[in-house]
Amino acid sequence: MKFKLILAPVKPHKTDPIVDAAKAAGATGATIIHGRGTGIREALTFFGLALEDQTDIVMFLLEEHLVDPVLSAIHEAGEFLKPGTGIALVLPVEKAIGLESQIDKFKEEIRDKYL
């Protein structure tokens, strides 16, 4: 099986809708890392310094065939067409371990899809 990783740095209020939409599109789960970020539309403090925004990095490890529907779902749920809401990118995964508990679900999805 081939896997890909979707990384989506988003505003914290968008995290739950994005995870819910991704699960509805076939993702089995997500990992969320809290962080800070800056962008083209930085807020300035009264000293003229840039204020770093809170950001959640939502990670989805997906079987390759699920990437497009999940990416589409998080694009809509995250309202990525609005400026400053977030982005998403897809990276190839060379190897992955620890997925044995989900292998039966993957096999079932493939059986349902192709048989």
Rank of each mutant, 00 (worst) to 15 (best):
L71T: 14
K113H: 06
L66C: 03
K113D: 03
I40W: 03
A24D: 13
L71S: 15
D104C: 02
T55P: 02
I97W: 05
F47P: 07
E109P: 04
D20L: 09
E52K: 14
L51K: 15
V19I: 15
I97K: 04
A24K: 15
I6G: 03
I97Q: 07
G98E: 07
Q102C: 09
A8M: 07
V19L: 06
L71H: 12
G35W: 05
I103P: 04
F46V: 11
M1A: 09
L115Y: 05
E64S: 11
V19M: 10
T38F: 14
L89W: 15
K23R: 14
I97A: 12
V93C: 04
M59C: 10
A25S: 02
E100D: 14
A43E: 14
G35K: 05
P92Y: 09
K95W: 00
T28E: 14
V90F: 11
E100S: 10
E42G: 12
E42N: 14
A96R: 04
K95Q: 11
V10Q: 02
K11Q: 13
G37V: 11
I97Y: 09
P12A: 01
H34P: 01
V58L: 00
E108A: 09
E79I: 00
A96W: 08
L44I: 05
P69C: 12
T85M: 11
K105I: 11
E108R: 00
E108F: 06
I18S: 03
H75W: 14
G29W: 09
H34T: 07
G37S: 11
A30S: 13
K105W: 14
A21T: 00
E52R: 13
K113R: 15
E52F: 12
D68C: 05
K4Y: 10
P17G: 04
A73V: 10
A73P: 08
F60S: 08
V70R: 06
K113F: 04
K82M: 00
T38W: 12
K2H: 12
G39H: 05
I6L: 06
L91P: 04
H34N: 08
P17K: 05
E79S: 03
L81Q: 15
Q102K: 01
T85S: 05
T28R: 13
K107Y: 02
R41F: 10
D20W: 07
A50Y: 04
A96H: 03
K23N: 00
E109I: 01
P17N: 03
M59N: 02
A21I: 07
Q54L: 14
K2A: 10
H75L: 13
H65W: 06
H13T: 11
R41Y: 14
L91A: 12
R111Q: 06
L62C: 10
K23G: 01
P12F: 00
Q54I: 08
I32Y: 02
D112G: 06
I103N: 00
D16T: 14
I18C: 13
